[in-house]
Design a protein around this nucleic acid. Structure first.
Lengths: 217, 217
DNA sequence: ACCTGAACACCGTTCAAGT
DNA sequence: ACCTGAACACCGTTCAAGT
């Protein structure tokens, strides 16, 4: 919010670059983020970023960490029971991913090792502990829930990038059609055809989160 | 199995090309599949593929569909109860993804609209129907379970490609380390540090599948 | 110390030309 | 009909040169 989108010659540092890459991801959800476009937005040469980040992966990791930090900060201010707070947090992660598709698309690849990521882990572990889990059960539930949230968020972000018309609210058709497949060979798919085509990314996300948390409770 | 890896001048068709791209993905799990390398493997020019597939996405989609068809064929021959068969099928999808990382990494993006994909949907719906689900419940469970399987398989495949040392059996650390993060700020992460670092991709996969199927049962 | 700009080694894709 | 090969518009990354 402190920066405008007009090319402005700014003194670079890691924070300014991460601001810029997230803004770019937000404003042009269907375009890949490249060093060239990032440089244009910052009014510097495309290769200037290499003074501040070893490579694109390190920059992307820093941007993802920032998104995680934002989600945690909001989640910690939230009220309610463990499940309510955890669901709200996981939903927020999906929303932030959909708002920054070109960044979030990498989310499932880069391992979460920054301060924001670890704060997210702590939040999830705290809620699951409140739910009464501990030991191996706690770790298993943590793995299921955060693995699902990360992988599914990244998948939705990738869809937003790949499909030109995809909306940012998660209403991306999960199955866009059955093409030339002869559906009469598949009775259940035939019978539930319309319901299957109506599934969108966010519905998958909610269904998965609910199912996993049901099993916790 | 019918083709050798030595450059062999073959008459091209879609089946031969899909054979070759899967073989390449299997033999060089850490390398991206490019038209150049595919052309070398087939003994043709890199651009020869464009006569048979509109673009790389269509080729990748065909390869993913083939993997899905393989998994379904095996699953249909399997025995046991609905849960046993469904778990075996989902596990096989993950295994095939890990064996073909460069292809499976795209799995979460491209929507499953080929005959093999639809056969997979039918299999999952059939098992969940046996479990007693129908209507909205059935669709919700289908979305949760197949969304998780696809997204998580793709995420694991992406990790195999990104990390040079990653094994093909899914033993990819989910969190590779906590870097320079001051863990004393995060009591639960600190307390479960070793258990968290011991989580691997396949453990996340199994935990997620179990949790979702628990909620079905 | 920090940024520039040329250069390199790749990509997917198009298209006129060959056979 | 099918494949070739040059060409194009991109990528990330390196590195010597500027200031």
């Amino acid at each position: 919010m402190s920066e405008e989108s007009a090319p402005k010659r700014a003194r670079l540092d890691r924070r300014v670059i991460v601001d810029a890459i997230l803004r770019l991801a937000r404003e042009e959800p269907h375009a890949r983020v490249t060093f060239k476009r990032l440089g244009e937005a910052l009014g510097v040469d495309a290769t200037a970023m290499y003074r501040h980040f070893r490579n694109k992966e390190e920059l992307t990791r820093a941007a993802l960490d920032r998104l995680s930090a934002i989600a945690v900060a909001e989640a910690e201010a939230s009220g309610g029971g463990w499940r309510e707070r955890l669901e709200a947090h996981l939903l927020r992660i999906a929303e932030l991913s959909l708002e920054h598709p070109s960044i979030a698309a990498e989310g499932a690849i880069l391992d979460p090792a920054g301060p924001g990521d670890v704060a997210g882990d702590e939040f999830v572990l705290a809620r699951l502990s409140e739910a009464g889990l501990d030991g191996a059960e706690l770790i298993r539930a943590y793995a299921a829930v955060s693995g699902f949230a990360l992988a599914q968020s990244a998948a939705m972000a990738q869809e937003v990038m790949a499909r030109r018309g995809a909306a940012r609210d998660g209403s991306i058709p999960w199955i866009s059609g059955f093409g030339s497949v002869e559906l009469s060979d598949f009775p259940l798919v035939s019978r539930h055809r319309d319901a299957l085509l109506a599934i969108d990314g966010m519905a998958v996300y909610r269904a998965g989160v609910s199912a996993i948390l049901d099993s916790v409770a």
